[in-house]
Design a protein around this nucleic acid. Structure first.
Lengths: 89, 89
DNA sequence: ACTCTAATTAGAGATAAATCTAATTAGAGT
DNA sequence: ACTCTAATTAGATTTATCTCTAATTAGAGT
């Protein structure tokens, strides 16, 4: 099921852009949301899908939620798929 | 646009399974369709998305259309994404 | 030209995804 | 306990995706 969640999460350009931004380092939900021409609730839904796929992790810092990229999941999933052993994550 | 088409194509489990099957070698549309519990027209739509993303190529042999995996596109796209230079395919 | 086969395209119905506004939660900090 | 801020969840609407049956196309082969 997880491999589904991962590819599902990667299928939307906004979510791929979020991952790209997180590559530079952790960002709060609000800071990330400000980068897009969409409302915060909409971004929140995208975050949820990324969390569900384990592509990001969250940590609270004061009033903010800080998102971190989980690069290892991404690497495992994509390279496993390239090797075409359907990964059992 | 193409990177969208590629991730969109990869987002559906049936299409990922088609790619996996094609890894063993080329197959006709009909042979592929028989592997799934779905109608041929449905599979045809999935094939179209894979063609659109350039993940497969087609060749006619007699009355059949033979699908081939285009592994290089897949490798380029996924490894480019892992390197996070948004690829310009 | 005719017919047969394999596959695709068209059209419609059903299911799922994306987005918004409004309401709610979670916790920080006084 | 109160209030303020940041973020999420709920509910509704719009838009896109998946799937089917029926009709059409493309070519092969006689």
């Amino acid at each position: 099921m997880t491999i589904n969640a991962i590819f599902e999460a990667l299928s939307h350009p906004v979510r791929r852009e979020i991952l790209r931004l997180l590559r530079a380092g952790p960002f709060s939900a609000g800071d990330l949301a400000n980068r897009f021409d969409l409302t915060k609730p909409t971004l929140s839904v995208h975050f949820a899908k990324l969390r569900e796929a384990n592509l990001v992790t969250v940590e609270r810092r004061g009033n903010s939620l800080i998102y971190h990229l989980n690069i290892s999941i991404l690497e495992e999933a994509l390279s496993a798929f390239l090797a075409f052993r359907e990964p059992n994550l």
